[in-house]
Every structure is written in structure tokens, then in C-alpha cells.
Design a binder for these strands. Structure first.
Lengths: 352, 352
DNA sequence: CCTATCTCTGACAACGTTGTCCACTCCATC
DNA sequence: GATGGAGTGGACAACGTTGTCAGAGATAGG
């Protein structure tokens, strides 16, 4: 008796006795395919038969197994999102926007946080590919995305956001970090500042490099030299940022003297620097990259170079689904403008 | 010839020519199962055979199809999270914490935003069940979760967070909203306030109802009557909240006069009210439910009743995986304490 | 030299669904 | 009463993987 090898009866399987279409068919006294037709709203079933099937479905608590459906149909109606940190106030609305686009296309969003670690980004992206997501939206942490090549050529639509892909050609949706930073620094210069510092993210991160470039460009355009001690790139944890800010503000290790104004490279840096400045006697001008909630209610209100994270996400989602619908266009790069929002902190005059 | 019906060759299928184990096996000149063994690191494969298989895998760019694996194995190693809004600064860290727990257990997190709509919550939760997530974490929007009963008894571990399930028994991880609100109001009373308003979320939301209860309890304990015009529950959009706040502050429609202090029911409400108060001449005391970034840098710094969203998420995740590992315990309710953080805005003395 | 034991390998079925295709029923028509 | 067609229903294979089990060699022991 080979049957003894099978522990479970056909009607109640596994730990969680999930009924299948077969069980529904048996109970309703119809064929398997008829149940499938009812479940999928396909035509060709008499009202009476349909009623019997529906009764059986509710009686058994049947729910279609989408894993099996996916396997059979090939497409999963889900897209993956890999970002740095879901809880970051910049990325959260971006994620939400991608979700909305996915939802409009009937797809679910699976997301994972890379914690700014290239290896973890890779693991996540590949795990999502193994689940056969139809598409991927990636805010890259790593500096080599060739590992995605087989996936992309196997048909996984892929869009990069906030930062471009490294070493492969792929769609990207970016903010114009260079221009944004340049305008921010020009704003400070226009208000009389000559010694301006920049505190940014790790230099390997594209946006950080671009913002630094924008900073240097604005300084150069104004004929201002940049002292080496005025630029500090690194991790955006409060400790490092606080130390660098304090160093620049007293002018320690600098022949050129302390800075009178700061450009901060992203929302986390800005918040830390706002804290540092709040403890100071003298007033220091500040322009922050990224808008943030309550910036307008601080004293002084914080002038920012604003991006639109939700728009970045939406554009990325739209690009993704356009690809999924089979546009065979070349990879393209969408660059969104930033917007300088003067609120006061950028208009503080130089101290010395 | 029935074969003409099959358009694709066996080695390159579908749009995106995904190689399968069969293809790998053919190329390596071994059996299907041997490939499976190599991919899964099972013992019993000679080094030489393994090498051949690995070569074929990289040559073809093979990646295991987890959909098929899931179908076969029964467990998906993924959990679902349904919350109101991924972009909300309260829920984002909660989501991230659940993700971390899932990651520690080798599972992926699929999340969806219900937009505070019970019907959408239901759709999302059931869609996740259809994908056969192993477990579900839900921040409920709806007021009847009986639709989950078949899923739960089919083995989907389910944990509710922030608010309890309605009309079913299920695990829940909550903050102690009642005590938190009571302490917040007691703090205001201790600083001399007698006319205290409460602006909260929709009354059908459990936390809003509990916070209102806490507010009333504190008032009653101090022997203070509550004027009907001092309580405003409703959607937390800025328009409604602003209107209610302004109404309370001038005492329009109230025999008892304008309030001198406010308890706000969640972070969104607090932020809107902070904006309203910033435009006022007189100083109004404020205690906000939920801590938020920069609360300490506003003028005056905002006193809050803090919850720990990340801890809520972590506990929920842990509870979920404990269930998944088969603890057959009764559904339990975990209640986490809140913490009053005095910063100044709650200590403003009454105006009149 | 034959058998017993062990290691490695592969054929086959099954997971739950959907697509293809054929069979059957029922009615209207000739 | 046979014929045709439309309208239903169901048998079967396939999606890509894993578990079971048995077969094929190799080695050792009698």
C-alpha cells in the first residue's frame, strides 16, 4: 500500500487544512475547471451551478492560492522596492507613492530596507527576483549593480530612484542635486557669507557627491576659495555630524577661520545641525537639503532646498509600469528640479 | 501535431527566457534532483558533480523560482503588514521594526496601506492571505474583523498592533492610551488649567476612544466638568483640526469659555495645533500624544505623551513569530506603557 | 567471485492553479 | 426524427520546484 506514505487526507491537508479548488469541486459536485471559472468570473457557467460553487466556497472558507496561480501564469502582480530605511522621513513618502502606483495597476509592493549596505541591497534585490516580482524599484546603496544584469535581461523591469545605477544602464529618477546645492550656496553668498561649510553624506553616495559639486561650483562662481576644513562628508549619524559641525563652527584646524554659514546635505544632517545651532550664542546661517516637517516653525525657520520625495516615487512607479507594459525604450534618466524655500535661516547675516 | 500549440522551446520560455532547473540539469548533464540538491546545499553530491552544476547555473544565469518552491513547501517565508499610511512618522518606524524581526527570521515583509478605510484593509489582508503569507500584522482600520476567521483557523498567524481586533479574538500589542491621556491631562491640571480641550481622531478608532476616556477620567478626578465644546473628534486632516482648535480657543459656542490648554490626540493633530498656536498672541498650554522629531526645538518645546512605535512593531513581530513557531497559547494582549515627557508647552500657566 | 553495504544519482509524483480541448446536453430547424 | 449549433462541463497537461524511493556503481567482506 503506497498510500500509507501520505499522512493527510485529500480534503484537509497540511497543518492549516486549506481547502483547494478540488475540495470545492467535490463538495459542489462539479469539475475542477468549473470552480476555476467561477472564481475567475469566466463566462460559461449556469447561474445554478455558480450558486452551488459559491456555496461550497463559503462553506469551506476557500481562498485561491495565488502562489499556484502565479506559478501557472508567470506574472506575479507584485513589485519590489529596496530602499535605505523605510522609517526615514524622506523615503517613507517615496515608498508610499510607489505603493499607490502599484495599487493602481493591481500590484502589491514588497519592500525591504538595505540599511545603506550594498551587500544587503543585493541580497534583498535578488530575493525579490527569486519571488519573481515583475519589477524592481531600487534606491541603491551599493556601487556595482552588475549583479542585476541577468535579472533585467530575464525581463525584470528595474528603475533606480534618488541615485543612479552603477556600472549598468538602467532607468533612473533623480533630483537635481547639483543645481539644488548650488542654488542653496548661492543664496547664502547673496546674503553676505564668504566662509560656508558643507556637511554631507558618504562621498560614495551619488547625491552627496553631486551636492558637493554644486557647493564647489557656487563657491567658484563667486570667486571664493574653499578651505579643506569646511567640507565634511561621512555617515549621517548624529555623532559624526555634530562633531564636524562644532569643529567648523569654531574653526579648529582651519587657517581660514570658522564658517558663518552651513549647507547640510540631507534631512538627517540638517536636524542634527539645527540642534547644534540651537545651543549656540551667535547666529549661524543654514540651508538644509530636503524639506522637513516643522522646518517653518523653528527659530529661525529653516531655509531648505526641497525635493519632492512623493513625486520621485510616483515617477519611478510610472516608469516601471510603462516598462512592464512593454515599452522597449532605451533606459532613460528623469531629473526633477529642486526648489529653494527661503524661510529665514538662510538669510541670517554673517556673524563676524 | 499537438506540438504546434506550444510556441516556446523548452529551454527558453516566456518573454524573459528564464532558465529552470531542468535546463541547468540538461546543460550539466545531470538529473533534475541533483541540481535541486546543489541549489539547496543538500549533502550527497560529489564535488565534481557540484562543480559542473554550478558552472551551468552561472552560465545560464539561473535563479530558483521561489513561487514554485513556496507552492511545493507550503510556507512562504513572508509576512504581511497592513497599516494606515506607510508615510506617517508614527507608523514608519513601526513598520521598520516589524521588518527587522521578519528579517531576523528569514522572512520578507509585504506591506500595504489601508488609508484608514476598513474595506481597503480587508481587501489588502485577504490579498496577502491569498499569497499565503505565513503571518499578518494589522493596524486595523475597520470595525469588524470576522472576515479573518477562516484565515486564522487555516493557520495564518495574526497580530493586531496599536488597536485591538474587533469582533474576533486575536493577539494585540497596544499602548496604554487611557493612562497616557489621563497623565497628560493631569499634568495640565497640575499646572493650574481648568478649561482643557481634547482634539482627537475619529471616535470609532480605539485609541481615540481610549484617549478621550483618559481625558474624561483625569477631569473627573480633579472634579472638573467637561464642556461639550471642549471635545472634538474627527478626521485628522489639517482643515478640521484647525477649525476645531480655533473654535475652542475663542470659546465660540461655549458657555464655559475658551480653553487654556489642549490635549492633542496624535502626532498629526499636534503638528496642526502647534501651527495654530504659533499664530496666537496669548500662550496656550499643549500636551501632544505621540512624540515627534524636533518637538524639543519648538518654542515652547512641546510636552508629549510618548509611545514607542518601534517597540510596538518589535513586540508585534516577536509575538507573530512565536505563534508561527507553534506556541498554542491563548490570544493575548500586550499593553505597553506611555511616558510623559515634559518639555515646556505643558507647563505654560493658564492665561486668564 | 559473489553478496552486502554504502554513496551518489535520477525518475516520478505532487503542490494548486489555469489553458486547451473534447464530450455532452438541449433546443431549434429541416 | 435526424442534424447543427450553442452553451456547458470536465479530463488532462503544464507551470518549476521538492520529497520519496529505487537503481547504479563502488568498496569491502566472506
Amino acid at each position: 500500500m503506497a498510500d500509507t506514505a501520505r499522512p493527510a487526507r485529500s480534503s484537509r491537508r497540511r497543518y492549516g487544512l486549506r481547502p483547494t479548488m478540488k475540495d470545492v469541486a467535490a463538495r459542489a459536485g462539479v469539475g475542477l475547471k468549473t470552480v476555476s471559472r467561477v472564481v475567475n468570473g469566466e463566462p460559461g457557467v449556469t447561474p445554478d451551478t455558480e450558486r452551488r460553487v459559491r456555496e461550497a466556497i463559503t462553506a469551506l472558507g476557500f481562498r485561491r492560492n495565488d502562489s499556484a496561480r502565479i506559478l501557472r501564469k508567470g506574472r506575479t502582480a507584485s513589485v519590489g522596492l529596496v530602499l535605505e530605511d523605510l522609517a526615514d522621513p524622506f523615503y517613507a513618502p517615496l515608498s508610499r507613492a510607489v505603493e499607490e502606483v502599484a495599487r493602481a495597476h493591481g500590484a502589491l509592493l514588497i519592500n525591504g530596507s538595505s540599511a545603506e549596505d550594498g551587500e544587503r541591497e543585493r541580497e534583498l534585490a535578488l530575493a525579490l527576483c527569486a519571488r519573481r516580482v515583475d519589477g524592481l524599484v531600487i534606491i541603491p546603496a551599493g556601487d556595482d549593480h552588475r549583479y542585476l544584469e541577468p535579472e533585467i535581461s530575464a525581463g525584470v523591469a528595474t528603475v533606480f530612484v534618488d541615485r543612479p545605477a552603477a556600472r549598468i544602464e538602467a532607468d533612473a529618477v533623480l533630483s537635481d542635486s547639483f543645481t539644488g546645492a548650488r542654488e542653496g550656496v548661492a543664496h547664502l553668498i547673496a546674503h553676505g557669507h564668504r566662509r560656508i561649510g558643507f556637511i554631507g553624506d558618504l562621498p560614495r553616495i551619488h547625491t552627496a557627491a553631486e551636492r558637493l559639486r554644486g557647493y564647489r561650483a557656487a563657491m567658484a562662481e563667486a570667486g571664493l576659495a574653499v578651505d579643506g576644513s569646511w567640507v565634511a562628508l561621512g555617515p549621517t549619524g548624529p555623532g559624526r555630524v555634530r562633531a564636524d559641525a562644532e569643529r567648523m563652527l569654531v574653526g579648529r584646524g582651519s587657517a581660514a577661520g570658522p564658517v558663518t554659514a552651513l549647507l547640510t546635505g540631507n534631512n538627517r544632517v540638517t536636524v542634527t545641525v539645527v540642534r547644534v545651532l540651537a545651543g549656540l550664542e551667535r547666529r549661524v546661517a543654514l540651508v538644509g537639503f530636503d524639506d522637513f516637517e516643522l522646518a517653518d516653525l523653528l527659530t529661525p525657520p529653516v531655509t531648505v532646498v526641497a525635493q519632492e520625495p512623493a513625486l520621485l516615487g510616483r515617477r519611478a512607479g510610472e516608469l516601471l509600469f510603462r516598462r512592464l507594459e512593454g515599452s522597449g525604450e532605451e533606459p532613460r534618466r528623469v531629473v526633477l528640479p529642486t526648489r529653494l524655500i527661503p524661510r529665514g535661516s538662510g538669510e541670517v547675516p554673517p556673524h563676524s
